[in-house]
Simulated scan of single mutants.
Amino acid sequence: MDFRPNTRTHNTQPPRIGRLQAQMANHGVDVIICFKPEHSFYITGFNPIIYSQPVIAVLAADHEPVLLLHALREEHGRAGSRVADIRLFGVWGDKKTTGPDWQTALTSILRELGVEHKTIGVEEEFISIKCRRQLEAIFPKAEFVDVSDLIDVCRLTKDPDEIAHARIAAKISDIGMETAIAGLRGGGTERDVCVSAMHEMNMFWAKNFPNVEVCDFGSFEGGVHNGLWFWALSGERTFLNCDNPTQRRPLPGETVSLLSWTVANGMHAENERTVAIGPLPEPCKRAFEAILEIREAVDPLIKPGTLWRDLFEKTREGLEARGYGAHTPGRIGHSIGLGPHERASIDAKSQLVLEPGMIITFEPHIRIPGTCQTQISDTVLITKTDREYLTRARGGYLEI
């Protein structure tokens, strides 16, 4: 079988495909094989939600993307992907496939591309040892290199469509946050406020964004049809960071951490606030005042050209000046996009520079077990000259 030329032009692909191919050329990578759900979506625009067989994106340095998926997923793949070249594997009814399994089909594709003996990029931070051995067995003459960091670098800068979807995710999360705050004011339990927040987020999504999907990325053992998540932790439970909400009702003098992760067409937003139930004990109130002052001092640095580590060091400086140096967190934010927690962190070691199109979380905090947890986080877009807070739910010191 001759390789079928893609009917779409390079202009129909988002800029990230060109960036990724340029990175491949710079690093001498002839083809990338992506198994990670976020990465196959990044290249093809397809999220099958539920995985029983791998969904594989193949990107050669000089060709448009190829999507390889099980025959059962053909209709969904053709409806949901932006690529024209879709190949099938497996056995399902009378469907014509490239091979009975993904290994045979992938071999055929790479041979047609003429890269089966060349440099093949794989995601060593994701694929299993078994998968790596399978690839080495079917392409014995190829050189395999890890492209995990290469892809992450490309993901740091978001395309216009990704930014638009992140804005939608942030709007949805704001609805949930305002609903949860109102629920606490009404005396609700952790579970009460989360159920109402997720209900309102879903209603807002259903009414205003008919063409937006809120599914998240799954695994071979399950999928996530709805990624509009909200959870609340009160009292001593705030130090758990993430746990399922309970029927616990917050008590006077306690704080409640309200945390929302949302997704729109693959792009995430993070929105976190801490609410005081009545006046707080003085040590906790002082910590809140300190972190709000520090946020105000660091905020002007969030703009193009600033080193990520400078944001961290400014935070550390503020904590030390107020007597909280021993409680300096390991990081004060991270990249966000296809993952709610992308790998790049705003910490003392980061060599990254803020650039237009990056989206980060801004979350300096003070965590003193038994005393206080100041959980405040926003999703922030770096613009051409400044920054834009995508999450806009009420902030500052919230006492009800």
Rank of each mutant, 00 (worst) to 15 (best):
A269M: 12
L259D: 00
P160L: 09
I302S: 08
D94A: 14
T104A: 04
H76W: 03
Y397R: 03
V195A: 12
R191K: 13
N244G: 03
N265V: 04
L68P: 04
G278R: 12
H27V: 01
A170N: 09
T119L: 02
A393H: 15
G90A: 01
G323V: 12
H117C: 06
K207P: 03
T328M: 08
Q21Y: 06
D161Q: 14
G266D: 06
T238S: 02
R82H: 15
E272S: 12
M177V: 13
T274C: 14
T385K: 14
N6Q: 07
I366R: 03
S260A: 15
E388V: 10
P5S: 08
G370Y: 01
E64V: 02
G305L: 12
A180W: 11
V212F: 06
P340N: 10
A276V: 03
I332V: 15
F209R: 01
P65M: 04
T361W: 11
R16L: 09
L228M: 15
V263S: 12
Q13K: 09
D94S: 14
M24D: 07
I336Q: 09
R132L: 00
S345F: 13
L68H: 05
E75Q: 08
D30P: 02
D146G: 02
D386A: 14
N6K: 08
G339Q: 14
P281N: 09
I336C: 11
P281M: 05
C215K: 10
G28M: 01
E190H: 08
D101I: 00
Q53S: 03
D159Y: 09
C194S: 13
D216Q: 07
E388F: 11
N265Q: 11
L240I: 01
L381P: 02
A290H: 03
A348R: 15
G45Y: 06
V263A: 12
T374L: 00
Q21F: 04
G45T: 05
